[in-house]
Write a protein that binds this DNA or RNA. Structure first.
Lengths: 342, 342
DNA sequence: TTGTATGCGTTATCAA
DNA sequence: TTGATAACGCATACAA
C-alpha cells in the first residue's frame, strides 16, 4: 500500500463500460440520468473508494469553496471568536476557512489580499488593520468580483457589506449606566480614533452625557492604547489635576484593568469613589476578584452573521451585488467595578 | 471594468509570438531559457498584470500549498496561539492555513480529515479531541502519504511526528516549587487522564513528591474538569474531609481559579495557608489581584516548531518518512498564589 | 438517456 | 533554446 493511487471518474467509467461523462453526471445527480445507472455508479464509486478531486472541480468551476479571513492577530480572543463563528456557519456549506494575520500593518493586508485572490478564494472576510487608510487594495477585491465582508473594523467602500456592533450604542449604554450609578464626572479612554469603532464609542459617550444634561469635559477624553500600562498612566495623568473623574469608561478592557490597578494602588475605592466600565467583555473581566463591567461584542454571532451575508451574496444572482450593513446590538454586562447597588 | 478577465500564459505567448511553454519556463526561471526572453516575458507579464493560477498549478503538481489545522475550538487562547505560530512560520513559505474545529468530538475529526484530504492539503496539524481513542482515521492520513504533525495532544502512531511540551516536567516543576514553599500535603487536580498530557502532568506530580520523600496521598489526586465550578466543588470535596491539603496543583488554570475563589470564600488564606498553582498560563492568571502561578506551554513556539517539522518533512526526500518528536520545555511563572517569599 | 469532444491554466515530455 | 502536445481530473456543450 505504498502509494495509494487516486481513483478518478475514468477508472469508474472503465469498470462499468460507460463514459466518464455519464459517471460525472451520475455523481452530480444530473436529472437526465437513469435511476439505474445513477445507483450503479454511486455504488461502485463507493466501493472503489472514489473521492472527487476538488482541485479539478475548482479549476473547472472557478469555485474553490475556500474563503479567507484577514485579522490583525488570530490569538486575540475577539478575533478567534469571530473566526469560530464564521467557521461554524460556513463549514456545513462545504467551505474551508483560511486565516491570515495582518499584524496591524496595511502592507501585509495588501499582500494577503493579493495571494488570497491568487489562490482563487470564493470570498474574503476582514477586520482592517489600525494603519489602514487607503482602500485601493480593498477596491481591487471588489473589481475582481470577489465578495468581501467586513466585520467589526470596516471601511466605507460602496458595494461592500459589513457586520459590526452598534459601537455608538455600546458607548451610550456604558455611559448611561455610569450616570445612573450617580457618576457625573465621567472620563473616557478612547482607542485610536482613526478606527470607526472607537470614534463611535466616543460619540456614544458624548451623546449620553448630553442627553442627561452633563456637559462633557474635554480633558476627560483621552486616547489610550489597549494596554494595562496605558490605562495606568492615563489615571496618573488624570489624578495629577485638581478636577478628578468619578468614573472611567474605557473603550478597552485592558486599559480599564490598568486603570483599576492604578486606582487601587492609590487607595481609591471602586466602585464607591470611582466606577469603571470596559469594552469587549474579555474573558478575564468576569474572573477578577473585582469583576469588571464591560460591553460584549457578541463575536461569535458577528462571525456567523458575516458568514450569512457572504452566503446570501454568492447564492444570489451573479449580476446583483448586495451591500448589506448588519449591525448587532452590544450587551452591557454589569459587574462589581461599576455596580453601587450591590 | 465589469468582468476583469484573468490573463493567462497564453495571452502573454500571443502577445510575444512565442509558445506558452516558453512563457511558463521563463516564469519558472527554467535554466534552459535565454536570459533575453526570460526578461522579456517577466516584463510583459508584469505589464499585463499576470497572476499565476494556483489552482491549475496545484492540479498539475498535486500540491496546493494549503495545510489544515484541526483543533477542538479555535477560540481557546492556547489553540489560537499555536495556530498563530504555525501561520507565521508557514506563511513566508507560501502556505495558507485552513482551520477546522473538532468540538472535542472524534466524529468531527474523522469528517474533517476526510474533507481536508479531499481538498488536497499538503499537510495536517492536529491536537486530538478528548474523545479520540481509535486512530484509524489518523492512520489513513499516513497511508495517503500526507504529512501529519501532532501538537500538544498527540496519539502514538508510528511514522507520525509531534511537538509537545514536557508535561511530566511541567508537573514536576510545579510540584517541586510547592514543596520548596514548604507545602507537604499537595493535592492534584488532573484533567481527563485519557489524554496523555494530563497523565504526564500527573506523573510529574507523583515523581516530584517521591523525589522529595513525600508519599502522595491517593485521595488528593482528583479528576477535575477545566472549569471554575469543577475546581470549586473539588475544594468542597477536599475540605469535607479531616485531612486537608496545604497546596493545590491544578492541571488547569480554570480549575485553579475556581479553587482559589472557593478557598477565599471559606476564608482560607492564599498563599499563607494554601498555595495554588495552575497550568497553561492563561492570560487571566497574571491579571488577577492575586496573580496565579502557572506553567506556560509556549504555544506560539509550539506552533512554529510544528510548522518546522512539517517543512522538513516535505522538503526531505519523498521516500523517507521522518518521525520526529519535539519536546519543548515548559516554564513555570511564579506568582502570588504560591509565593511565600514575597 | 448516454457518448464525444473540449476546455479550465499549468507544466512536463519529446522533438525540433 | 524553443515549440507542439499531452496530461492533471472534472464538467459541460453538443451530438447521437
Amino acid at each position: 500500500m505504498a502509494e495509494k493511487d487516486k481513483v478518478t471518474i475514468y477508472d469508474i467509467s472503465k469498470k462499468l463500460n460507460i463514459s466518464a461523462a455519464t459517471v460525472s453526471r451520475a455523481l452530480n445527480n444530473n436529472p437526465k440520468i437513469s435511476q439505474k445507472t445513477k445507483e450503479l455508479v454511486m455504488k461502485t464509486a463507493a466501493k472503489m473508494n472514489y473521492k472527487q478531486n476538488k482541485l479539478a472541480q475548482a479549476l473547472k468551476s472557478g469555485k474553490t469553496h475556500n474563503v479567507g479571513v484577514i485579522v490583525p492577530y488570530i490569538n486575540r480572543n475577539f478575533f478567534s471568536s469571530v473566526i469560530r463563528g464564521i467557521e461554524e456557519e460556513l463549514s456545513p456549506h462545504g467551505y474551508h476557512v483560511i486565516i491570515c494575520q495582518s499584524h496591524e500593518d496595511v502592507n501585509n493586508e495588501i499582500k494577503q489580499i493579493d495571494t488570497l485572490l491568487n489562490t482563487q478564494i470564493d470570498g474574503i472576510f476582514m477586520s482592517v488593520a489600525k494603519t489602514t487608510q487607503d482602500t485601493d487594495h480593498i477596491e481591487k477585491v471588489l473589481k475582481e468580483n470577489t465578495p468581501l465582508v467586513f466585520f467589526d473594523r470596516k471601511k466605507d467602500v460602496t458595494g461592500l457589506s459589513s457586520v459590526t456592533i452598534d459601537d455608538f450604542r455600546g458607548g451610550y449604554l456604558a455611559t448611561e449606566h455610569l450616570i445612573k450609578q450617580g457618576c457625573k464626572k465621567i472620563a473616557h479612554f478612547s482607542g485610536d480614533l482613526n478606527l470607526e469603532i472607537y470614534k463611535n464609542r466616543h460619540e456614544g459617550y458624548i451623546a449620553a452625557m448630553k442627553d442627561y444634561g452633563i456637559e462633557p469635559i474635554k480633558e476627560f477624553s483621552l486616547q489610550v492604547n489597549s494596554k494595562l500600562e496605558s490605562g495606568a498612566s492615563a489615571i496618573q495623568d488624570l489624578w495629577s489635576e485638581d478636577e478628578k473623574p468619578d468614573a472611567i469608561f474605557s473603550a478597552s478592557d485592558y486599559a480599564a484593568l490598568g486603570a483599576i490597578q492604578e486606582l487601587k494602588k492609590m487607595g481609591v475605592k471602586i466602585p464607591e469613589e470611582v466606577c469603571v466600565v470596559g469594552f469587549s467583555n474579555e474573558p478575564f473581566t468576569k474572573y477578577m476578584e473585582l469583576p469588571i463591567t464591560s460591553v460584549d461584542q457578541t463575536p461569535v454571532e458577528m462571525g456567523r452573521n458575516a458568514a450569512k451575508v457572504f452566503l446570501e451574496q454568492i447564492e444570489g444572482s451573479k449580476t446583483l451585488t448586495i451591500e448589506k450593513k448588519v449591525v448587532l446590538a452590544p450587551e452591557l454586562y454589569i459587574r462589581d467595578s461599576s455596580n453601587r447597588n450591590l
